[in-house]
């Protein structure tokens, strides 16, 4: 095995892992605040489409990326409205997004390109050459020349780690995911904190979608996400709800995928190679899985007083009732 084989393998690994990693980070952030977002899949597909369509119309892929993220935020706003403020079931709303996303995408796609299969080529984001680093012999090809999403993704991992563990906002987000009642007693607004986390998660999920359509292949296809959203959801749990862990878990998926693509001459039936990433995860999970601990209030609703039936006229009472529901 030569050095270049290893470099190629590492590059391929990171390329494959990036969309999943972005989706995973989206899950991580909103689950840290106690809101399950299982609609990542749907958000990814609609953002991938919006990104491609915007890039197709404006000829500017960066605008496409922006549009994709915006749509991601809008989609997750539905979770904010329906789950956080109206106390709807988080999981069901997420599942609804998984239907809405592809539904709307293909609907508009049929209008725009007259088919529901594949879009025309769209302008995509070019790889970024980093001036000095690209000339370093071995490190150069690993670090330089990738599509921008790879760098953005790593940046987000670092930023999210900093925000979650080293800022007061991060502390609040984590507390809201562990014990919203305590946060409320201190006088902070649980709903706003949770909403902000979900919206940021939505933007990340949007970015994940855009990285699929504009980062690598510059085209949008029906079923492009291929359950990557669910994989991201799993990777988040596997990564222990931490940004670095999530990224590493996604990298594990990426490396297995890159490995399977490189094992064709081994004589193993292709079906077994296709199982490889999943079997590895399962085995890894058997070893590490016992320690997984979700944020205590992960997926636990904290009903907004406005959504509680028949409120009494005194405000304090409403809050108490909300607290009681949250404890239950």
């Amino acid at each position: 095995m030569s050095v270049s084989t290893i470099t190629d393998f590492l590059c391929s690994m990171i390329r494959t892992a990036t969309p999943i990693a972005l989706g995973t980070l989206a899950c991580t952030f909103s689950e840290r605040a106690g809101v399950i977002n299982i609609g990542i899949e749907g958000i990814m597909i609609i953002s991938a489409f919006t990104g491609a369509a915007t890039s197709f119309i404006t000829k500017n892929p960066w605008l496409g990326a922006l549009a994709g993220m915006t749509v991601g935020v809008l989609m997750s706003a539905l979770i904010v409205i329906l789950s956080i403020y109206c106390n709807g079931d988080q999981v069901v709303v997420g599942i609804g997004l998984n239907l809405l996303g592809p539904g709307f995408s293909y609907l508009v796609m049929t209008k725009l390109w007259r088919n529901r299969g594949t879009s025309p080529w769209v302008p995509g984001l070019k790889g970024i050459e980093i001036p000095v680093i690209k000339d370093i012999p071995i490190l150069g090809p690993i670090l330089s020349g990738h599509n921008p999403f790879i760098y953005i993704c790593i940046g987000i991992v670092v930023a999210m780690h900093y925000v979650l563990y080293h800022t007061s906002y991060g502390l609040r987000i984590r507390s809201v995911g562990e014990n919203p009642n305590a946060v409320a007693t201190v006088g902070l607004n649980v709903y706003k904190l949770r909403s902000s986390a979900v919206l940021i998660g939505g933007a990340l999920a949007g970015l994940a979608g855009v990285s699929l359509s504009l980062g690598s292949v510059n085209v949008f296809t029906n079923g492009m996400t291929a359950n990557k959203g669910f994989l991201a959801y799993a990777a988040n749990r596997f990564g222990q709800w931490s940004p670095a862990g999530s990224y590493l878990a996604s990298i594990l998926f990426g490396s297995m995928e890159a490995l399977r693509i490189r094992m064709q001459s081994s004589g193993i039936p292709p079906q077994f190679l296709q199982m490889l990433p999943y079997i590895t995860t399962l085995l890894a999970l058997t070893i590490t899985g016992k320690k997984l601990r979700a944020p205590a209030a992960d997926g636990v609703p904290y009903p907004h007083p406005i959504s509680v039936a028949k409120p009494k006229k005194i405000k304090e009472k409403k809050n108490k009732k909300a607290d009681k529901n949250a404890i239950d």
């Binding site: 190629d8 391929s12 690598s216 292949v217 291929a226 995928e257 693509i261 292709p270 296709q274």
Partner: peptide, 25 residues
């Protein structure tokens, strides 16, 4: 001749990765 199976009719990104890996080989 290197032959490999991608496992999908529509996986553009996967095919691209696979083509790149074949190029590396």
């Amino acid at each position: 001749v290197i032959v490999d199976y991608i496992g999908s009719w529509t996986d553009i990104a996967g095919c691209k990765e696979m083509a790149l890996s074949m190029h590396e080989q």
